[in-house]
Amino acid sequence: MGFLEVENITKKFGRQTALDDINVSIERGELVCILGPSGCGKTTLIRIIAGLETADGGRIYMDGRDCTELPASKRNLGIVFQSYALFPNMTVHGNIMFGLRQKKELPRDEANAKALEVLRLVDLLEHKDKYPRQLSGGQQQRTALARAIALSPDYLLLDEPLSALDAKVRVKLRGEIRKIQRALSVTTVMVTHDQEEALTMADRIIVMNNAVVEQIGTPREIYNHPATPFVANFIGMMNFYEREGEVCAIRPENIALADRRDVYDASAKIQSLEFKGPLTRIHGILPGAEEIFVDISSEAVDNLSLRENSMIFLRMPEDNVMKYSEGSLI
């Protein structure tokens, strides 16, 4: 049994099914991302794990203990919300002490030492006497993280922790969160709709759609072997086309260009070329009017002097083609 076990969790809001028989097992010390489009039920799932929402059916086990009925306060977890929910009338230090002071057995000076320790960890020591509104977005985020880990939780839950930040800060904080998570080896569940965030940070990814789990796996597994067309389409770029009653899928970077005289799998007419630095994405049309995207090095585009309306010949290596039964296409 995993350190966190989600068993047959079901949740409905009125007639809307938010979670339909969800099963997840998370190991101690892992960082797991729940990834999915908005409205797929990922936030509901993390709130049920947190004990902030009650499931209609199913069980939650934490470290082997049935915690389904326990309120959030009894689950020993730290949460970082999308809005951070920092108490605006308390300083950074005060925010962290607020939770620490609830531990009756912890003397005041030890609580204080603990607060300073986590502040050092998130590199906010010099800002400890500031109020939240005096901080930048990234600093607020780190304060929320510090507050969540100060109580040495068994589980760290992050609900879209980076989505309120601008792109540069986001990338920097990804690394920092991951570093801190590793250092503390705290079991972490993070909700995100950003696939890049999930791919770069997670040990394993849970891909959700329409209230169900589509696939659970490492970032590599998810990317290289998407279990369903939804996963294939949601993560990274994917070409879909039909062959002999089967839905085939291949990533743009796995398609190779061939010479007219060589063996090739398909031909396409170039619709447009999108220069992306080292790579160029070719937008082509197959004879059956299907669209196809091919990524090749910009150098090759120049060498072959490809331009709009020229014909290209494509090779799709068998190993890289994924096949799904017909009708499973979204």
């Binding site: 947190a50 004990g51 902030l52 309120p71 959030a72 306060s73 009894k74 689950r75 977890l77 730290g78 949460i79 919300f81 809005s83 929910a85 108490f87 009338n89 607020f98 939770g99 609830q102 507050r147 969540a148 109580l151 839950l157």
Partner: peptide, 22 residues
Amino acid sequence: DREYESVSESMNIPRYKTLLLV
């Protein structure tokens, strides 16, 4: 923010304290 209550709950802060201090 609705999450003030959620955060407090996760930090095991009794509700009356959140009401009184936040």
